[in-house]
Amino acid sequence: MGNSKLYKGSLHTIILKLLEENGKMYGYEITQKVKEITNGELNITEGALYPALHKLEAEDLLDVEVAKVDNRLRKYYKLTEKGSKETVNKLKELENYIRNMQVLVNPNWSIE
């Protein structure tokens, strides 16, 4: 499937969901986690990931923690309280979207 444009609109939701499950994560870790979960089917490009992370940070949905790792700095992202609430909303939105697409594309198939 590779990098379908269909995934683009869901990037923020993917990031929020991953952080909800894993606590704090750094950029490279996020790309690898997505690859691992989807068995390499979905590949988040770095060029899309960092602008998305910076946007979520500016919207106060993510908090940044800086730590020293191997004599360099690493930026860890974690959900803020507002981010946790937004994750629930975004996931609900995505679920509804998938449900509606199902009905439109294949009415006999169900994710339930």
Binding site: Y28, D70, R72, R74
Partner: peptide, 9 residues
Amino acid sequence: VELLDHFIE
């Protein structure tokens, strides 16, 4: 600093 960490990894 963030891109450097990513590149190294």
